[in-house]
Design a protein around this nucleic acid. Sequence first.
RNA 1: GCUGUUGUAGCUCAGGGGUAGAGCACUUCCUUGGUAAGGAAGAGGUCGUGAGUUCAAAUCUCAUCAACAGCUCCA
Length: 639
Amino acid sequence: MINITFPDGNIRQYAAGTTSLDVAKSISEGLARVVLAASVNGEVRDLSRPINSDATITFHKWEDKEGKQTFWHSSAHLLAEAIEALHPGTKFGIGPAIENGFYYDIDTGDKPLTFADLPAIEQKVLELARQKNEYLRSEVSKTDAIKYFTEKGDEYKLELIDGLQDGQITFYQQGNFTDLCKGPHIPNTESIKAVKILNLAGAYWRGDIERAQLTRVYAITFPKQKELDEYLVLLEEAKKRDHRKLGQELELFMFSDKVGSGLPLWLPKGTAVRQRLEDFLKKEQIKRGYQPVITPHIGSKKLYVTSGHWEKYGKDSFQPIMTPQEGEEFLLKPMNCPHHCEIYGYRPRSYRELPVRIAEFGTVYRYEMSGELHGLTRVRGFTQDDAHIFCTEDQLKEEFLGVLELTRFVLAKLGFDNFTAQISLRDPNDKAKYIGTDENWRKAEQAIIDAAAEVGLNTVTAFGEAAFYGPKLDFMVKDALGRSWQLGTIQVDYNLPERFNLKYIGADNAEHQPVMIHRAPFGSMERFMGVLIENCAGKFPLWLSPEQFAILPVSDKFVEYSYQVKQALEAEDLRGVVDDRNETIGRKIRDNELKRIPFLLIVGEKEVEAGTVSVRKQGEGDQGVVSVAAFAEMVKGML
RNA sequence: GCUGUUGUAGCUCAGGGGUAGAGCACUUCCUUGGUAAGGAAGAGGUCGUGAGUUCAAAUCUCAUCAACAGCUCCA
């Protein structure tokens, strides 16, 4: 007999060799019907795998992340079976589950898959699912595995097998389809009741730009048709929050072919929001001892040769600007750090004045590849809420903590509670990509890890995601469609101080090299605005909103009073407009609701006589009548 | 940059080898209306750009630019 421990600490005894499914059945038939996989000693496994010794067990249902992942991974196999049935000779790459659904990379040879093929494939998936085939696991020798896929002619699978060790290779089969896979899988295809192929796209084999481009088929499945329908509605809703769409509807920003791609033009309303964000952070930074500076938009090429950026990015950047002077070259600045290094180094520095915190909303230009451009979140000209902190080794951790505090303060103020803090470290297997000594890297990485741990920040660690000059801590936030974007960033840099030969005089009257922290709580104004727009669905917080109120006269007889109210509110530092169009009140309400104006003030005969306004809150309807002064007080109380 | 899709009025889109259409927005007039679309009339486009095929191209072909999705990249 073996002891099985359940998540609640209960222990029950079973015969050795019992399966997770048997264990589930012993608890209830109901559980056995809905369970998809089980974690045995922390490893997610097939329900049919026997358990031979004492173990802890956790069951995974559709509601769990592990349950969904297993369900979708199994669905990927089913999708492959359907594609193979309809398009014989298709070669298969990999087909993992992703956050929402799964994909399979396929190579259909010279007959590419088109959107017209998709309905038939979806039908086939459902047809195969209804065959109620089991997912059968088998352990296969490397020789047999190679033999199978050689006969099938699938070189992608052969390449995958090549990287595996004999004795660790498993196949899974359902119906007529056998795949190289380490599992786990759900027991049977019958629980897959609804499928939608979401997208087709190119993807390089093994992510390598030099290799073949396969067709990546994105799809999602559900155990109930209703859940699929709801998911598709959710996707549609998310598209409505897209900042590119809202930016146009709310007249926040635009792009112009004549200006150039990736170069946003900020319209008055977008500018109003952005400037308030800037003012907010500038004030906070002053409180925290930052010193604002201003530097030019270009810098001599020599500056970037010194910094090392020319060597690293020069050929992929906006190319140097020539001058009438032979041999003189300037670069549009792609970052502010070198300018700030020059400011730090313009005179000798004493340890007494460290840390020096140099801040600038600096506009930079980077020639991003055309395919990378994306609304406001990936552009070629953008403004960083940049600052560089020059400090001693001993001050590093405290400064890092201070920046962490500021960044979290900023995110909280703007309503971002769903961020991920990512610690980006070197790829330990490819140190050649980075500059600087091992010793400095080790120190910098440790400082970040320690500081994050000290404030109890929940972090994920990403190896290979560091900047080429140092490790960093990034705050990642998702957009309306679930894509992750880096917003705030904090980076430790031992490299630039060295390249610019920056020094300070210590208490020992000797020269020392300061450490540099790059940091930007917003990241860039453009990207932050983009993600902010999506996060609030265009309904900006009251203090940021371009217009806080709109006054809607019931007829043009009340326009004059409307302007008096507007003046009175502006005297209270509130901002808004009068909708004096010759339109019905219903129309004015509708149009201004759609502009996401927080408060609509309706005025007619009654209001004029009583000196009041009838208040309507965005999205919440009529709030009743109050005096103008009372309204002003109420709004100010909400700021 | 790569693969695929798209490009027609300010916006959303229909059409399609014989020189352009709808709704909304806009302008004017009527209406003076009380909590999410009042009525009428009018104006507005060399169909992304450039070549080619054709008696004829917005429509077909090629190139180019831009946008979208994913990949790759992100100082």
